[in-house]
Each structure stands twice: as C-alpha cells, then as structure tokens.
Design a protein around this nucleic acid. Sequence first.
DNA 1: CTGAAAGCGCTAACAA
DNA 2: TTGTTAGCGCTTTCAG
Lengths: 381, 381
Amino acid sequence: MANSKPTLRDVAAAAGVSPMTASNALHGKAGVKESTRAKVLAAAEQLDYRINLTASMLKSGRSNIIHIIVNEFDSPFYSKLVQALATATTERGLTPFVEQTSYSPTAAERALTRNPFSDQLFDGEIIHASGLGTNLPLARMNAGRPLVLIDGCEETPSVDTVNFPNEEGARAAVQHLIERGCRRIAIVGGEFVPRATLAHVEHSYGLRLRGASGALLDAGLAYDESIMFYGYNSDYGIKAGHAIGDAILASRGDTATKADKAGHDAEPPSAADAPFDGVFCANDYAAFGVIRGLKDRGLRVPEDVKVIGIDGTSFGAYSTPTLSTIQVDLDQLAQFALDMITRRIERGNVDGAGNATDAASDQPVRATIGYRLVARESTEA
Amino acid sequence: MANSKPTLRDVAAAAGVSPMTASNALHGKAGVKESTRAKVLAAAEQLDYRINLTASMLKSGRSNIIHIIVNEFDSPFYSKLVQALATATTERGLTPFVEQTSYSPTAAERALTRNPFSDQLFDGEIIHASGLGTNLPLARMNAGRPLVLIDGCEETPSVDTVNFPNEEGARAAVQHLIERGCRRIAIVGGEFVPRATLAHVEHSYGLRLRGASGALLDAGLAYDESIMFYGYNSDYGIKAGHAIGDAILASRGDTATKADKAGHDAEPPSAADAPFDGVFCANDYAAFGVIRGLKDRGLRVPEDVKVIGIDGTSFGAYSTPTLSTIQVDLDQLAQFALDMITRRIERGNVDGAGNATDAASDQPVRATIGYRLVARESTEA
DNA sequence: CTGAAAGCGCTAACAA
DNA sequence: TTGTTAGCGCTTTCAG
C-alpha cells in the first residue's frame, strides 16, 4: 500500500518525468508539452497527490495567504465584515487567515509583528484599525508586506487604506432624523468633542461626530455636551437608552406638575415637551441597545423617539422595530482591499531582503466605500 | 544593516553556539545549561529573530494550527461559535484557522480533503456538522488527523464528537411554553417528521423535533403536520411568522363572523380562539424572524403569542422583545473540543505514514454540552 | 550538555 | 521542452 504520502518525486516517477517538469505541469506553467502535462496530471490523480504547502512556501517564499485582523468575531458588524473579506479573498484564489484581537491594541500589534506566521507566511494583511493605537508605524511593523488598513481615517495615509463614509454617512443619518421631524436629537457614541476640535480628527468616531454635528448645526439645532450619551455597543447602548428615557420621563413629570399648578385645563404632557425626539447612534450595535433601553422605560420607537444607526448590520432588517441605518457597502470594501493587496503582491512589494521596492508605485492609495440610507420602522413618521 | 531576516544560524553565531543548541534553547527544551540559554535568548532578542514556521513545519511535520470549519461567519450563532472556538484554541497555545463553507457540503468536503493545507499543515480539525452530507467517512477523509465533529449526533460516533443538548433543550423549551400557559404550540424549523421516524434520527434538527414532540405529547397536546412551519433562518422565519399570524387572524375573522351571526352579545374574538398561542423555533435566528413576521401581522409577542428559541445567541438579550431561549454553553463546547483534539495530538494520533495508531485509545469519545433555560420577555405571562 | 551531518519536499536558476 | 543542481531554514538523529 501507499507507504506514505506521495511526494512530487513519486508523481514524477510515475509519469516518467523529472520532478521539475512535474511541478511545472501541476502549476499549469507554460512550456510543458500537452501530452506530458496530461501524463503528470493523470499520475497525480492516480496517486492522490497533494502538494506540500510548507515545502512550497519555504522554497518560493509565497503562500497566497492573506492575514485578516479584526477585533472579534461575535458582533453583527465584525461577523459581516469578516464574511465579506473572507469571501472576496477566496474568490481571488487566495486563502484568508482570520485573527481576532479581542479589542486589545497589544494583540493587534502582536498580530502584525510577532505572530509566528507573520514574517514568512502571509503574502498580505488586512487590518481593521479600530482599537489600534493611533499613529503606529504600520508600514514598518509588518516588515513591508502588502498591508491594507480598514477605516484608518488618516488625512495623509501612510499605507493603503479603505475608509468608511464616516462623515457623510453620519451627516445623512442626522439629516434623515431632521427630515422626519426630529428637533431635539441625542447622539450616542463616545465622548463629546467640541466642534473646533473636530476639524482635524483622524478616527472613525470623530468623523462621524463631525458629520452629525454638521447636520445639526446646519439645521440650527444644538450640538453640545447635553445631547451626548456614552454607548459603543449594545450593553452601553442600553444604559444610554435608559438615560435618554429617564430624561424624557423627568420632563413629562415636570410638565405634569406645571400643568397641575396651572389648573386642569392645561395640555397633557406630550412628546412636544420631551428633551429628545431623536437619537443618532454611532453604530448599529449601540442602536439596538438604545432601542432596548428606551423600551425598558416604556418609551416607543419611533412614536416617542426615532432612532437611527450606522453600519447596516444584517440584523436591522429583523429587529423590532426594524432599524433605520446607513448601509455601508462591505462587499465593495472587500473588493477595494483585495485590489490594493493583489496590486502590491503582483508588483513585488518587497525584495528578498524585505525592503520596499519600486518607490514610484509605492504611494499609499486610499478609497472610500459607498453607502445608502435605509429608512425603516425606527424612524417612521 | 540587517541585510535579510535573521535565521537560526545568525542567532547561533551571535551566541557562539551551534544552531541545534540555539534551537533547543529557544524551544525551552530541557538539557540546555541556563547560561547558554540566556546567551541564546539575548542574541535572538538582539537580532529580533523570528522562527520561520514554514521551515519548522516542513521538518517537524507539526504546525500547531487547528482547522475550524463552519458554514459562515455572519450569523448570530456561528459568529458566537467561532469566537468561542478561536478563543479556546488560542488559550491553549494553538493557532485557529477558520474556514467557512457557505453551507455547501462540497465545500465542507473539500475543506477536509482538498484544502491545500489540510494534509500537511493542520494538526487537528474541528468541523460543525450542519450541512455535511450524512454518513461521510469523516475519519478517513481527513487522513487520520485528529478530528472533532460538532453536533454530529451519531448514535455510535465514528469520530470524537461534541453534541448540543438538542433533545433535552428542545423539550425544556416546549415545556416552558406549556408552563406559561400555551396549549396550541407551533413549531418552526424544517420538515415534519412523524413521531415514529423520530426514534432513530441522527441529526440535530431531528433530535430537537423529538424533544419538542415529546413534550407536546406528554402534555396531551397535538404533534402533527398542521403545527409545522418551515423556517431555518430569519428570512424564512419571517415567512413562518406571517403564516402563523395569518392563521390566527383567519380564526379571528371566523369567530367574528360566527359572533355576528349569533348576535351582538357574543364575546369579541379573543386569544382563546386562536389556533396558536405559542411557537417553538428550532433556532434563535429563526425566532427573530418569526417575531418580526408576527409583528408584521399586528400580533404581539408575548401577549398574543409566546415565542421561544434555542441556541442562546447574544442578540436575544437586546432584541425587543428579549428572546426566551435555551442557552447552550459554547465555551464548554470549545473546551471539550480542544480537550479531544489535544489528547489525540499528544498521543500521536498518526504515525509517519499517516496511519492511525494506538488502537486502544482510538475509540471515539462523545460529550454533550450543558444548557439552561433563559426566560425572557418573549414568553412572559 | 553540545555539535555535526543529513534531509524534510519543493522550486529558482541554469544547463542540456 | 525537459532535466540537473542546489538549497530554502529548520530539526531529527546520533556522535561527541
């Protein structure tokens, strides 16, 4: 019986050719007679031969493996991003290797620099910037391998970058809230950033804030600390929802009290008195939490408060209420990223010594993906 | 400057020892004088040396990479499963390599047999059975590498298996519906399977149906084709929700008509007349769709219909209503799976020729993970 | 405790 | 069009 795994030599011997010819035939290289190729293929098939990738990589220095680095697998956003990236990678005949950093900047850095595979195994890397320390010398960290940054948001990018439409998307989301009649809009995301500081931000959240605040200001609405609530994910989103809900309920209480004092013919407390009638969430994941938190306080979305997110996670189509959001085109993102990677791989981004070459084509490129507003129940009039 | 990547030889030279000693020192092998080890470590650090995994694998035949195969990344269930598995793998000092098959049995088979890496790269594999053709000669397909099947559900497993508590979990779910007062319970999942046939099923859905039908029958409730609705995911779940909703509304119409005929003092149509007052969904993903579909028909969960899922996806805690479910312990699953894998790796599951060895310890083992009922809003009384 | 020799399976470079 | 030579960087084996 087959005593061991067949090697290229076995195939070559069976086909009556040299190992080199067998290798060329198997790889579909030009310059092999058709009849010879056929013989080799038949022998390989017959022996159930599989190439030994480790040997091949060792010799050729190429693996066709693309390293994909994200924060985690289990979130509506990342699971969708990973799926898009992995699918696109496979479609190009490359192999995706997905790694999660669990939101640790150290882990992200290690993935790029100290992952046992990085130095010799990966032909290219795609990393989602969130959670990375800012201004890391990325290009140097990964030893000049082709690298694409997702949502790096640098004004003058140091590496190839695909950005989300952060500012435009956030602006569109808030404008939609305004069009639907909201006049007191809360923002759920990170810290408050003064408008002036926003001019030079270089990270995703800052840009979203810039877009949102721009839309607010253009419409003559308030943008200040009082409308900001902390919440990046569903757990914090729930808390933000509670806080917003409490504020609304407190104002109802006040109004009711005033009405009592004024006598019984006063208007009953209504939505018009509430401090908030709309919420823009810096991502969908938080928006789900906010809706949940509002519900906990007995407030209805969209009747009492309208809510919009940004990202376009799959779940927004199934939730109750369905979530209005800015749907970003993740498939386009994946295509852009792979275009950038393969372009560098083909041009031979690094020489044998790991030094960047071909300075002319070495300029980092940048792309921003498309988006569209998806209006669903959570912002219905 | 460093003209090229430093190799083990460079480190050895810098430390004034042989490559072999350097290798042993770096790997923490016993039998290296402490002072020598220190010198080697210092040299490696100094040169920023990284082992070349491809060379190491080529020679040693070990990679420490575990191949994880699932249907997709972007679903609440799989994203959670992948995260648990990847995290547990990393914790054990192994490297997870996650691959998606997009629900194609062919792709699953190829992942196991023809993936360019499989034969030589992976030290072990973990595959989620769903979507696999049944009764595949799994152990043979992956050439005797350590393999763990997730939810294979075979009565006499041919390979190490970690099962979900399908039957018990489904039973508990339906019992919970009954305890909460439901008497006309619909099942959303796959095809109807007669009770007799259910005795010998060997797949996840069949077992869930067995558990569910058992609970129904024990309580003297109906289990027949009329209570079955098709829906495996959210999209189909919505359709199932519509169908169930339509059935309920139709019965109200009938009742209303009868009431009219009987005169105006008849009872208004009430929930007591509805053909369904509870829904058991074969997975959470479908449950979200069902709730959505019911809502589309103006029916309220849990007031008009109670809904329970099974899986315990993260999202159930944030949805509206929050979803009652059977929470399965995915972290335990990951631990079990890795215990099985590492046990085989350590015992040296295969000899140099790829033949299984050590027949005594070769018996496939099986484990079933724990679960708990999580009662949330969707089944509130 | 350390070192020397040999070669894992493949492919780049060159020769025929 | 095909074959030969050499060696990628490491680790197994066995000798010192």
